[in-house]
Computed example of a mutant assay.
Amino acid sequence: MVLSDSLQSTSAIWQWHDLPIRYQTAGTTGDAVILVHGFGASSDHWRKNIPVLAETHRVYALDLLGFGLSAKPTPGEPFLYTFETWGQQIVEFCQEIVGTPAFLVGNSVGCIAALQAAVMAPQLASGVVLLNCSLRLLHDRKRASLPWHRRSSAPLLQSLLSYRPFGNYFFNQLAKAKVIRKILLQAYRDPSAVTDELVDLLLQPALEPGAAAVFLAFTRYSQGPLAEDLLPQLTCPALIAWGDADPWEPIALGRELSNFPAVEDFIPLEGVGHCPQDEAPDQVNTILQNWFDKHRSSKANP
Rank of each mutant, 00 (worst) to 15 (best):
A114R: 11
V128M: 04
L138Y: 12
F171H: 07
L156S: 06
R136Y: 10
A117M: 01
A114S: 15
F166P: 08
P147S: 02
S152Y: 15
A125C: 11
H149E: 12
P155C: 08
L131C: 11
F171E: 00
S153M: 09
S159I: 04
N168I: 12
A175I: 12
F103S: 00
R136E: 12
K182S: 15
A177E: 06
V129Q: 04
S108P: 05
G167L: 00
S108F: 09
V129E: 05
P122D: 00
F166I: 11
N168T: 05
L137M: 13
S126I: 13
C111S: 13
F103E: 00
L157W: 03
A175R: 01
K178W: 06
L160R: 09
L185W: 02
P147D: 04
S134W: 11
G127I: 05
Y188H: 09
A125T: 08
S152C: 15
K182L: 13
S126R: 15
L135H: 07
A114D: 05
H149K: 09
C111L: 10
F171W: 09
R150Q: 11
A117T: 02
S108N: 12
L174G: 14
Q116F: 07
S153E: 07
L138N: 14
S126D: 13
L130N: 02
R181C: 00
R141K: 15
G110T: 06
V109L: 14
Q158A: 05
I112C: 11
L174Y: 07
L160H: 07
V128I: 06
L124H: 00
M120W: 03
A118C: 02
S108H: 13
L157I: 13
S153L: 06
G110M: 13
A125M: 07
S159Y: 07
R150A: 10
S108Q: 12
L124A: 03
K182T: 13
L124N: 03
L135T: 12
R141Q: 15
F170Y: 14
L124W: 02
I180L: 07
A113S: 15
I112P: 08
R151K: 05
V119A: 04
G167K: 00
A121W: 08
S159V: 06
N107W: 12
S162P: 05
V109K: 03
L156F: 07
Y169P: 08
S108A: 14
L115N: 08
R143N: 02
R181P: 00
F103M: 01
I180E: 01
L160V: 07
L146F: 07
Q173M: 11
